[in-house]
Design a protein around this nucleic acid. Structure first.
Lengths: 385, 385
DNA sequence: CCAACTTCCGCCGAAGATCGAACAAAGCCT
DNA sequence: AGGCTTTGTTCGATCTTCGGCGGAAGTTGG
């Protein structure tokens, strides 16, 4: 047994969160002696996890030496797998993107083909960024379906033929792989990049379908079976005629999802198949499409009103393909939520479009990887190795 | 500054959770050396927090000395304040009830009167249990309205005139006081006493109104403004004519709460004013009442179906006055939830009546107090004092 | 019944970790 | 220039933890 750890991990957590940028900060925040802090910081610097930059501003005395995560030597990746696309971003340990790429790709081709594609892209991005493969510490992957997070196995995903129960992390070796639902990683990405102060956040993805990622107490809530946030099949009133692929009727997704709007537009004689087509029509100023999007917003708002009463989040972020026309979507959502939710819950609630936009998923997947690597347990393991 | 804490709190947490009953258990679970554990346990014993009982079963060698929380010397109280009643339970540090009492009492009489009543009852119970007032370490109070938990001030409670913003903890001195919504403490009580293994639990109280307590990751989720779980004002479809006191229509509470059922029965010519009257009619075998309760179950189930998709709990517990006729209520709830929620979410979901019944709130309020006192930070403070 | 074995637990020296004080460094202020 | 303030390092004292040893207290097997 090694003697006594000495938890350098807690110190690193404060540095990575940006709560502390100097040794003095750390001493104040942890209550430990300055000498102890220095010792721990030295250990982190020696392991290449932290670096000193030039001196900062003096506050009347000796200027403090700034500390930050050592952004060389390590790399992390976020992978966003959609039904028809694959985006990969290589990041340094602070979450900054070093290189990224996007391809169209069919997830239905099965795990081996898709993951081989991902692996190849990882190598290319590492080359672009000039880092060796050995620098890659962890990879986060968001997939369009339910996943058993602990094992990284998709759990009966409806639109991922061939992936059921496939152990994704086993495909890669020498690097830790975390797999989660795409909406969850989008919620994480948006929270960490834009709303890190919010304790409770909902990320609503409105695309072909509708899903929701939940951040509670700053952490992802996945639920008992990892199926939390599946709001696409919540019933909305007054649409009993709308059948859904899940077998029920009046599901939110079946009346307000991108596919549903496209279908309605088709019935009206307009050419629309996907959410993207709907967006194009709205951007072209088509009033029918605009009306339907706003109406979809109201329906989504009806469901969100319930969830606001139940969950009482601080922020609701609207993302996904249809959020490109978020003015109209948000108008409908806000209108309904503020009318139907309790004042106490809505008083400080803000409902905003995604700031990270199309990057929400890759960023979130990368954060999943980085936070896993920076967890105090893992860092103590590294420092005491 | 004191030298170095030495976190005895973590050890105590394991003992109080029942995860460890011997020094060896603790060494195995924490990974610390046996000698270190012994030292910490000694400190806890010296402070009167832990006691040794007689030896346990041998497993082939010297039998271990059993450890448990020292149940003398400390006392905690749980208080359940309702609109018309006051229940107080005195507990030892392990959560066992030493003495309890119940009175009718009108919360509308205002905080001074009500809290004086509570204080007097506390003294009486302490006398019954033969413990001095100084043994009382913390008190948890559940109140029928929203509370700012951090400060213990009710937040515009609709049925607690005179209590708005009243600093409840300040009324008591020499003892820590935690105030929370009654549904939250009921959820905590049910979780800790009956479903401690469940990570995510919902407690639905069906009484005059309808509310929900949320346990996520084993901890209460209160939401951003402390208003989480307010499901009584979620809209249900097909009841737009039912006006609610909140100003909206078709609220769950306005169509499925005890008061709403009573009103419907009155319209049918039956004498019923409160939820208790409804229960009496059902127990007397009245088929109209029975039908309405079952129908209320279906409406509640409709809302819960949405929440199951969203939150994915392991357990839903049904409590409150109407759960006395839970067979009929549950039938309606189960029927709807299993039909309307996704299979992945319902597969391992159990929906059960409250096991702690009328005691849920006092027990939960007491647990709130005990867990506050046993939090590692607090224990380390005590041990290093 | 006794010896060997297993498990539990306290004692103690050694190895770390942490602290606090003293000191050096590096800027600001007068 | 000299004092003040804040930062960071060095160093001995103190505290915590470790791990080995031996005694305690059972079980198992002959």
């Amino acid at each position: 047994m090694t003697p006594q750890p000495g938890s350098a991990g807690d110190v690193l957590t404060l540095i990575s969160a940006g709560s502390a940028t100097t040794r003095s900060d750390l001493a104040r925040l942890t209550g430990l002696a300055r000498s102890t802090i220095s010792q721990r910081v030295d250990a982190l610097i020696e392991r290449g996890l932290v670096e000193e930059t030039e001196s900062g501003e003096s506050t009347g005395g000796r200027p403090p030496r700034q500390l930050r995560l050592h952004t060389e030597d390590h790399a992390f990746a976020g992978v966003d797998l959609g039904a028809t696309h694959c985006r990969v971003a290589l990041m340094d340990i602070s979450g900054d993107v070093l290189a990224e790429c996007e391809d169209s790709m069919l997830i239905g081709e099965g795990p081996e083909k898709v993951l081989a594609h991902v692996d190849q892209r990882l190598d290319r991005l590492l080359g672009t960024a000039g880092r060796p493969r050995s620098a890659l510490r962890a990879v986060g992957i968001g997939v369009p379906g339910p996943v058993e997070f602990a094992t990284g196995r998709p759990n009966n995903p409806p639109i991922m033929p061939g992936w059921n129960d496939y152990p994704v992390p086993d495909y890669f070796d020498g690097v830790e792989v975390l797999v989660d639902n795409d909406v969850n990683v989008m919620a994480l990405g948006e929270h960490r990049n834009s709303f890190a102060d919010a304790a409770h956040l909902l990320f609503v993805k409105v695309g072909t379908g509708i899903g929701c990622g939940i951040v509670a107490q700053g952490r992802l809530h996945r639920g008992a079976q990892g199926s939390a946030g599946d709001i696409g099949h919540i019933r909305v009133s007054g649409h009993e005629d709308a059948g859904c692929r899940c077998g029920n009727s009046a599901c939110l997704e079946a009346v307000a999802g991108g596919a549903a709007i496209a279908r309605r537009l088709t019935e009206l004689g307009l050419a629309a198949e996907t959410g993207a087509d709907v967006v194009a029509l709205v951007q072209a100023g088509n009033t029918q499409a605009l009306r339907l999007v706003r109406e979809a917003g109201r329906l989504i708002g009806e469901v969100l009103a319930s969830l606001v009463n139940f969950f009482n989040p601080e922020v609701i972020v609207i993302g996904g393909a249809l959020s490109r026309v978020h003015e109209h979507l948000l108008a409908g959502i806000r209108e309904t939520v503020y009318r139907r939710s309790l004042p106490l819950a809505t008083h400080h609630l803000s409902i905003t479009p995604s700031r990270t936009g199309i990057n929400a998923a890759v960023l979130g997947a990368g954060m999943l990887a980085i936070e896993h690597y920076l967890s105090p347990d893992n860092i103590n393991r590294i420092v005491n190795a």
